[in-house]
Nucleic acid binder design. Structure first.
Lengths: 233, 233
DNA sequence: GGGAATTAAAAGTACTACTTTTATGTCACA
DNA sequence: TGTGACATAAAAGTAGTACTTTTAATTCCC
């Protein structure tokens, strides 16, 4: 019906997780294990494993004699890539994109500054290559190809920062960039100014100019925020 | 043996999660379900639920005919509060504190800037109150009381930013601050300069001066980084 | 009317039987 | 001798049932 997964577990998890993050069950809603088992036509064992996972994401809480209670948004593990994916697939995707972009605007400049200090020659090379790829695909409705380079570029920056917490945001950034490209009208080519900035960031990192890398990335971030109307125009 | 939890599940989860994040099972290690069941003296059902949760944290991967394989650090959900707690309790806690502090240094200044724009009067009041609490407890070996105000202060800032992703870092910040206080010698009073900065941040937020709130928070962050020798002295 | 005892509903745990996947080893054929 | 198809078995996945434990809610007694 929703996602034809390879296992019963995955299927039930995907369906329930999506429904909960989409707000179909308001916080406080109580689900009963065997009711769910019946609904999905699986054994209680499968449902219990799913509930345990949802519980570890703090989407629900399971209490004896009460049932499985849906928790308020505030307690969700919003950094769980799975949860992020569910929410981006749901209704409040715009809001979600906004808050993730604000997060990016805080993290990426600092990450770029660190990358300038820590990037390996290989990473510098990779960065330049992706930036050039962006230039090459920035005209003529080649948005899909452009996106690939864009995602790769930001991933390298986050990895090269040498900070594990930053590195793990690579998936988030990928989701945001993909979401943005696919959500927008997809007709217009990317902003030339942004493309140039990426090339310059690669340059700054190569030259070990941390302050410049940070500042340039901050400008990219401002552009991204403006695009989503987070900032005044 | 390790953590006497209230349920079998929690106990096994805590023990295994801690062991894996501590690096006791190198990536690639294969665990068998019924071997674990035997070792912990619980049923396979319980083990399977635990494995499912560990799988959702990307600590392990379960494949048929192979077993439960421990995954490399790079794929762990390092933003999962549970994972963070396990890692802070383990051996590489210093490294962990460092990378989390770098994350803070990126996020909190931006959050403070947003807080200056979005904080409710109630939040402004709360902020001032916590800052004053910090001042009051900053002398005379009252580190535990000081910590409470410090944590509360940063939580309010993150909440007041109005950004959900920032707000959810409250727990992380709490862990870091607690870890730092308890790890250090606990003899010396907090840096007076830091205390003053907190008061000034509260002031800036109250006066809706976003730029100042951001800059002051950046100074707090620099202090925190220096304290952990992340920056050169 | 309030508090203690009872009840029952739902999750937690255990165990067992069966199914499915799949790594690995075997054997035949080129 | 090497290669590919096939058989085997090992381990996870699924199901179903029986039992335990917790605890909200009801009842009943003082």
């Amino acid at each position: 019906m929703t996602t034809p997964a390879q296992g019963l577990h995955s299927h039930v998890l995907a369906t329930l997780g999506l429904a909960i993050t989409a707000g179909e069950y308001p916080p406080g809603t109580v689900l009963r294990t065997d009711e769910l088992a019946q609904r999905f036509d699986v054994s209680r064992t499968v449902v219990r494993e799913v509930v345990r996972v949802l519980e570890s994401m703090h989407l629900v809480e399971s209490r004896r004699r009460v049932g499985v209670t849906v928790l308020p948004t505030a307690s969700w593990n919003v950094y769980d890539p799975q949860v992020i994916r569910w929410r981006l697939a749901g209704a409040d995707r715009p809001r979600q994109l906004r808050s993730l972009t604000v997060l990016r605007s805080a993290v990426e400049p600092v990450a770029a500054g660190l990358a300038a200090l820590n990037a390996t020659p290989e990473q510098c090379r990779e960065l330049t290559e992706q930036a050039l790829g962006m230039v090459a695909t920035s005209r003529g409705r080649r948005l899909e190809e452009y996106l690939v380079h864009d995602v790769a570029f930001h991933r390298v920056v986050l990895d090269a920062s040498g900070n594990e917490m930053f590195a793990r945001l690579g998936d988030v950034v990928a989701e945001v960039l993909t979401g943005r490209t696919h959500h927008h009208v997809m007709f217009e080519d990317p902003d030339p100014a942004a493309v140039t900035l990426h090339v310059q960031v690669a340059e700054a990192v190569r030259e070990r100019d941390a302050a410049r890398a940070e500042e340039l990335t901050r400008q990219i971030a401002v552009g991204a925020l403006r695009e989503l109307d987070v900032l005044a125009p």
